[in-house]
């Protein structure tokens, strides 16, 4: 049985690196990523699980970091936007107007990255189901959908 008091030393594996940190047991993963590790790509927006701006990948699945405790995910693989480099989805967002103000972009990119990995040939229904987890207040949804399709095409061409 694992027990942490109000303040605990934990080990997190973020973007392939292990870090030992002192955190409050009540600290969310989002707070630890931003305030303890300086990884500010994930945004603290609604902090209520509604907007998806804080999305990170936990063991390859998208999750909302504002609704997870850091102590819960000790030893698990966490990927933030800072750990994503030179991927098709990032290039596709740049080339297809996938963002406007950019605030929601890290969350959308990570969610789309996980989607492409889990379902490289997903249909429109699956794309919609996954992307509904994120909100873009600039309403740039068409550009985001276009970017997802473009990334899927790049990946398909790359694997041929």
């Amino acid at each position: 049985m694992i027990m942490y008091h109000e303040i605990a030393e934990i080990s997190l594996r973020v973007n392939g690196e292990n870090r030992r940190l002192w955190v409050r047991a009540a600290d969310t993963l989002l707070a630890v990523l931003r305030n303890h590790m300086g990884l500010t790509g994930g945004k603290a927006a609604c902090e209520n699980g509604d907007c998806g701006a804080c999305t990170v990948l936990l063991e390859d699945r998208p999750v909302k970091a504002c609704l997870i405790l850091a102590v819960e995910v000790e030893g698990m693989d966490i990927l933030t936007i800072e750990g994503l480099k030179q991927t098709e989805i990032q290039r596709a967002f740049l080339e297809n107007g996938g963002f406007q103000c950019g605030y929601c972009t890290p969350g959308f990119i990570l969610n789309a990255y996980a989607l492409l990995k889990a379902h490289p040939e997903a249909d429109d229904e699956t794309d919609k189901e996954w992307l509904q987890s994120n909100i873009c207040r600039c309403t740039g949804y068409e550009g985001i959908k276009r970017s997802l399709k473009a990334a899927r095409k790049m990946m398909a061409e790359g694997s041929e």
């Binding site: 942490y4 303040i7 009540a26 819960e72």
Partner: peptide, 21 residues
């Protein structure tokens, strides 16, 4: 941010969870 503190326990059996509670 959660403004109050709590202890966190992660039991590995049902019995541990119930007895801890």
């Amino acid at each position: 941010m959660i403004s109050f503190n709590f202890k966190y326990i992660r039991p590995s059996t049902v019995e541990e969870a119930v007895s801890s509670y």
